[in-house]
């Protein structure tokens, strides 16, 4: 097989490039600790989520304090709103670690805190679990970024990260 020496060089470089890419991604997981959405949220019956009889946090979705600076947020996505998020903003204090549990009661949705790396698919029957640190106070938009029906473009919400001092820690949403 005749392979020109330049092309042999290029094959070697291409393989190095590929290994470099894989190493970068592995570094992202091990160094800064970026974790992928996985199966840790478990499964759930979408129709029970719809009717509020799932026996989980999705029956009364909202923010709960689970430890010092630790919060859980259950978010239910449905055509065409986030509950909570759309009608009233999700409020969490700055400097906290927040675990979102997101599921859908009808069709597939997306959950993206706009302009950040917090982004997940919301699939009926599956619970997406995402843990995020919010260091600074700020106001974020939440976008549904997967087509979910004719009103998809209106589906949005808000997340308010408020200063510790202003946060009423005893109640959720």
């Amino acid at each position: 097989m005749d392979i020109h020496r330049f092309e042999k060089l290029w094959i070697a470089i291409a393989l190095l490039l590929i290994i470099g890419f894989i190493s970068t991604v592995a570094y992202g997981s091990l160094g800064p600790g970026v974790k992928m959405i996985d199966n840790s949220g478990g499964t759930i019956d979408a129709e029970e989520v719809q009717s509020g009889s799932s026996g989980t946090g999705f029956d009364d979705p909202g923010v709960t304090k689970t430890g010092p600076n630790e919060y859980e947020v259950y978010v239910k996505a449905q055509q065409f709103q986030f509950i909570p998020g759309t009608s009233q903003p999700i409020e969490v204090p700055a400097g906290s670690t927040v675990t979102f549990y997101v599921t859908a009661s009808d069709v597939t949705h997306g959950f993206n805190i706009a302009g950040t790396n917090v982004n997940t698919m919301v699939i009926p029957g599956q619970v997406a679990e995402l843990t995020v640190n919010f260091e600074e106070p700020g106001s974020y938009g939440i976008v549904c970024n997967e087509y979910c029906g004719g009103g998809h473009h209106t589906m949005e919400g808000r997340l308010e990260v408020v200063p510790q001092s202003e946060y009423n820690s005893t109640e959720g949403v």
């Binding site: 800064p32 992928m36 675990t99 302009g115 790396n117 917090v118 982004n119 995402l130 843990t131 640190n133």
Partner: peptide, 9 residues
Amino acid sequence: LGRGPTVIG
């Protein structure tokens, strides 16, 4: 990586 917040768990 320069843009937070990011999913860490």
